[in-house]
């Protein structure tokens, strides 16, 4: 049933882990990237992710269709985003504080409504077997790629293109860089930010649906364990660029697979250290790429980080 692959298990696990684990990071971070490019920070995406995981699982279970679950998760995420965007338009409201409040609200609501769905088994999202060319079952398993991963990657490219070459992209960027300039050319910054936050929330919701409907593939209250928060941080690491968000998500997923993979080939001591690999790697990369002049390179001008 399987071939002995020995140490090859490690690179393979990192590759497989990158594909399996990265998708929620990818969706949340490109969603947050979109929101932040419009000049707002939505720290509440951890709550949106968890609520998306719950609602996606619940709807998939009730309807029997995982894609209906993904849609429901996206809608729920959009509602959270709209709520954030709507409250933030009022004077004196701090988007970071609202984000934290919404994170707690999202998790609380998800735990509350999710109670009856911890036990049932919902249908999983289908995966595309891209490992057909190999005879090795482990390679085939690692290359079981979920459709959402491919959609996420395509969205990252599309979003980068949108920011660079389309009118919508330009509009978001103007609003994000200078509220005054946007007003001067007749744009309504609040509407643009509202829609950007809603779209960002919808993407985070889809990330949640991936967690509960594909990997690890079941709803429970610890399903996210902080991935939404890490993904928000990845946006800064990725310099507000959707393509970099994709690479950052892959890096994070792959590094997370390192701990279990090393133990499985017999490198057993110090596994707590290997579990910290994603964070150590992020820190190291941040230190190597940092420079005092370019610290906020790529950051939208209106972001409250910048003020």
């Amino acid at each position: 049933m399987s071939t002995d692959i020995g140490m090859w298990g490690v690179p393979l696990a990192i590759l497989g882990g990158a594909i399996r684990v990265s998708t929620p990071f990818l969706f949340v971070s490109i969603g947050e990237c979109l929101t932040e490019r419009s000049g707002r920070i939505n720290l509440g995406l951890e709550g949106t992710l968890v609520f998306g995981a719950m609602s996606g699982y619940a709807i998939a279970f009730e309807t029997g269709s995982p894609w209906a679950g993904v849609l429901a998760a996206a809608l729920a995420g959009a509602v959270f985003g709209l709520f954030h965007g709507w409250i933030c338009k009022f004077k004196g409201v701090n988007d970071v504080a609202i984000g934290i409040a919404l994170m707690l609200l999202g998790m609380g609501l998800a735990f509350f409504f999710g109670k009856p769905y911890i036990q049932p088994v919902a249908p999983d999202l289908p995966a595309i077997p891209l490992g057909w060319w190999s005879d090795i079952p482990q390679v085939q398993a690692a290359l079981q790629v979920n459709a959402l991963f491919i959609i996420g990657a395509a969205l990252a490219v599309a979003m980068a293109w949108m920011f660079r070459s389309t009118k919508i992209g330009l509009t978001i960027r103007v609003v994000g860089d200078s509220t005054d300039a946007a007003r001067a050319i007749g744009l309504n910054p609040n509407t643009v930010r509202l829609l950007s936050t809603a779209a960002g929330g919808a993407l985070a919701g889809v990330g949640g649906a991936y967690l509960s409907l594909y990997y690890p593939g079941s709803w429970n209250e610890g399903v996210s364990s902080g991935q939404g928060l890490m993904a928000v941080a990845l946006v800064i690491f990725a310099r507000w660029n959707p393509i970099y968000c994709f690479w950052a998500a892959l890096l994070f997923g792959g590094a997370g697979a390192l701990g279990p993979a090393l133990q499985s080939v017999g490198v057993t001591s110090g596994y707590y250290l290997f579990f910290a690999a994603p964070y150590v790697l992020t820190l190291a990369l941040l230190i190597f790429t940092s420079s005092p002049d370019k610290a906020m390179d790529g950051a939208p001008g209106e972001l409250s980080l910048n003020k």
């Binding site: 882990g17 967690l211 690890p216 279990p260």
Partner: peptide, 9 residues
């Protein structure tokens, strides 16, 4: 959850 799934894989 995610780490348990990775470990199992």
């Amino acid at each position: 959850a995610v780490k348990e799934a990775e470990a199992t894989n």
